[in-house]
Design a protein around this nucleic acid. Structure first.
Ligand SMILES: Nc1nc2c(ncn2[C@H]2C[C@H](O)[C@@H](COP(=O)(O)OP(=O)(O)OP(=O)(O)O)O2)c(=O)[nH]1
Ligand SMILES: [Mg+2]
Ligand SMILES: [Mg+2]
Ligand SMILES: [Zn+2]
Length: 570
DNA sequence: GCCGTTTTCGGCCCGACTGTTTTCAGTCG
């Protein structure tokens, strides 16, 4: 019964209801609720256990959906979903994953051809039965077959850092087009989401531009998905989709707001506009047919009496309410960072020596750093106690020659299966800061894993829990663990939680960070660099921290060395 | 299905691109 995916259940209900032809607003309610429970900064389970009506206080969760969440929590099942699956084949929702096929056409192939799965649909398309259906032509049939192939290849979402590989060359190419004024990346990339489904680019022009023709002629494009005067999409050879939107220069602000999203944020802002008799779209803010403003984002927010909101916060997770009462957080910036507390050297699995890492940290203006090579439990990469002592002596020597940075002796100590550590208390006592993390034995139950990590955190010499959930984006699920409980332990034991800035970790997640902030637990943003260049991953960590509403004071490595050392006192 | 000091009923964001639609539905952003 542990680990019910509440969001998935609501998503499935939304899909099935939509195929059934239910009221679109009812469908949207389920989709919104799925989003809400997925990204909750208060843990859903503690709300579910509570006696009171706390669940109903969540935006978009009323009596009915709260009841369904409770039923799921208590029984592990949902009668309503089971009944729905009797009425609509559950495998039909897969058909909606194919580009160009939505609820109406899923319904149509089910009704007309008794198709209930992607495989059956593929057969119908191959046999030519599909193009006989009203509304389906040969073009559509071919598109479906292609869509099914792509679905099998499964490009999926791209890590933000992978998207970065393609963004700069593409922008450089687009800038060659005639008639361009602005060119900016919007969408989830601008909101600095940990993964992006595509790249959304906004261009503006004063007198018309040839940018659309130029765009679809990009040599890295594999396919043109759509092409119109204001909006075109291509798929890159790498599989990544790119959407380009072109609007008049005077619509820059409104278009940027629209194209940055998120969708839920847009709907909320437009709803507020509507209450005030305003129409907000990507071209501007309108009163009737009269354009009121739209040149800048500030104007758009201003039209609904809100201050400008950072893109990272635009997720309809309370930022609008916070902005309304002037309580938006002043979120952290890269320049606030004064140190990096996890990195590796050639002593373990790093590529650069301690001296090189120190030099690289000084170049980045850091005032302190910790060298955290692995303990002996990592057999290939780990250090024996004697290696650590050798390294500490080397650090002493390096430190003697430097007065602009403090090198903290440390280690990334492994949390063993029973919650004990792979280095002795004696050795830990020789360190300035102790970082702990799980690196093996992931297949414990949630309760066991939580107990294991909690025990390690209770060790009196431990300061930082690194990459607390162990997930690797697109490669490895987090091990099962109760992050809410870890936050509580961190609070009681004065342990800090790491936000690991490696772009495939970004661990903790944004909503975990919000949870920690609300509990007053300090976060440390570390790059876990395995070479000097990886120290620059810090900005990914800061981006994630911004999405988690963290302010400078919430992040321990924004403090001066003295203050940071003070924070570690138990 | 949710929501509300203008409402407990009647609203719910708004627009672009595609295809076979003869005047616009479906899908997607
Ligand atoms: N008003 C409005 N805006 C939308 C809607 N769908 C998308 N947008 C806007 C907000 C999105 O951030 C932006 C880009 O759309 P995308 O589908 O690419 O979404 P986004 O980039 O947020 O996430 P992604 O990582 O691409 O899945 O377009 C919508 O239904 N209504
Ligand atoms: Mg996008
Ligand atoms: Mg897009
Ligand atoms: Zn590690």
């Amino acid at each position: 019964m542990e680990n019910i995916d509440y969001a998935r259940v609501f998503e499935e209900i939304a899909d099935l209801l939509e195929i059934q032809g239910a009221n679109p607003f009812r469908v949207r309610a389920y989709r919104n609720a799925a989003r809400t429970v997925e990204t909750l900064s208060q843990p859903l389970e503690s709300l579910l256990k509570g006696e009171e009506q706390r669940l109903e206080e969540l935006p978009g969760i009323g009596k009915d959906l709260a009841g369904k969440l409770r039923e799921l929590f208590q029984t592990g099942e949902l009668e309503f979903l089971n009944e729905l699956r009797q009425q609509v084949p559950a495998s039909l929702v897969q058909i909606m994953q194919i580009p160009g096929l939505g609820p109406k056409r899923a319904r149509q192939v089910w009704d007309a051809l008794d198709i209930t799965s992607v495989d059956e649909l593929e057969q119908a398309a191959r046999s030519g039965a599909l193009e006989q259906l009203p509304g389906f032509g040969s073009t559509m049939q071919a598109r479906v077959l292609k869509g099914i192939e792509e679905l099998k290849a499964r490009a999926g979402r791209f890590k933000l850092s992978d998207a970065d590989i393609y963004v700069q060359p593409l922008l450089a190419y687009l800038r060659q087009a005639e008639g361009l004024v602005d060119l900016e990346v919007a969408g989830s990339y601008r909101r600095r989401c940990e993964t992006v489904g595509d790249i959304d680019i906004l261009a503006t022009t004063s007198n018309g531009s040839s940018v659309m023709d130029h765009f679809v002629a990009y040599r890295e494009a594999r396919e043109i998905l759509a092409k119109g005067p204001t909006k075109s999409s291509i798929r890159l050879k790498a599989g990544l989709q790119v959407d380009l939107r072109l609007v008049p220069q005077e619509s820059y602000g409104a278009a940027m707001h629209y194209f940055t999203g998120s969708k839920a944020h847009n709907i909320a802002i437009r709803g507020i506009g509507r209450e005030r008799g305003l129409k907000i779209n990507e071209y501007g803010v309108f009163s009737g047919d009269r354009l009121i403003c739209g040149e800048t984002e500030e104007e758009v927010f201003g039209a609904v009496d809100l201050p400008w909101i950072s893109p990272e916060l635009r997720e309809a997770r309370g930022e609008i309410e916070a902005a309304r009462v002037k309580r938006l957080p002043k979120i952290i910036e890269l320049e606030d960072i004064r140190g990096d507390l996890q990195m590796h050297t050639t002593y373990s699995d790093g590529r650069n020596t301690a001296e090189e890492m120190v030099q690289a940290c000084r170049e980045r203006g850091y005032k302190y750093m910790a060298i955290t090579d692995h303990g002996p439990a990592l057999r290939m990469a780990g250090l024996k106690p004697s290696d650590f002592r050798r390294q500490f002596a080397e650090i002493d020597e390096l430190q003697e020659r430097l007065d602009d940075i403090r090198i903290l002796k440390s280690a990334e100590v492994d949390i063993l299966e029973d919650g004990s550590l792979d280095l002795s208390d004696g050795l830990l006592a020789e360190m300035d800061v102790v970082v702990i993390a799980v690196h093996s034995k992931f297949n414990l139950s949630r309760a066991e894993m939580t107990k294991r990590i909690s025990k390690a955190m209770q060790h009196p010499q431990v300061n930082i829990l690194a990459h607390p959930t162990g997930r690797l984006i697109n490669r490895r699920e987090p091990y099962p663990v109760d992050v809410e409980e870890l936050v509580k332990v961190a609070q009681n034991e004065a342990v800090m939680l790491e936000l690991n800035a490696q772009p495939d970790r970004l661990d903790l997640r944004d909503f975990h960070l919000q949870m920690a902030r609300e509990a007053g637990v300090k976060i440390v943003i570390n790059t876990d660099a395995h070479r000097t260049a990886e120290l620059d991953y810090m900005h990914y960590g800061v981006d994630q921290a911004r999405r988690g509403w963290l302010e400078e004071a919430d992040v321990a490595n924004t403090y001066s060395l003295a203050k940071f050392l003070e924070l570690m006192q138990k």
